[in-house]
Amino acid sequence: MRSLYVGRSEAVAARMMGGEIVVISPEDSSLFTLNAVASCIWNSADGDSTLEQIVRNQVCAEFEVGFDAALEDAAAFVREGSQHGILQVSEQPLPRNPQVVLPTPETKL
């Protein structure tokens, strides 16, 4: 998993809610609320970066967490996300997903 490329699925809808991202899966309409670390991985899953790169360059840089522990948690998240169709993993770089996570209208309707 660590050397696999990770990308967001184009079929999902995602929005910011407070500091978290909520993602809805098209496959079973499941709703996922991503915590801060998972949101960081989600935002970095551009299809061009491996999970290892994401954890080293984004997660460990942003959160006080060791690389090995972070990678283990990240791999579990990516595994679950790919099972539900919200993330894609590949041995090759994936097409870049231009999807932008829209903020929830917290201050303006």
Binding site: A11, A13, R15, V22, E27, S29, L102, P105
Partner: peptide, 24 residues
């Protein structure tokens, strides 16, 4: 709320609309 909203379309545009409506 999302568990109980009736929506049938699976396309991203509709998912996005439903999610936005529920969040608001």
């Amino acid at each position: 709320v999302m568990r109980n909203i009736l929506f049938f379309a699976k396309e991203p545009l509709w998912l996005e609309r439903v999610l936005a409506a529920a969040l608001r």
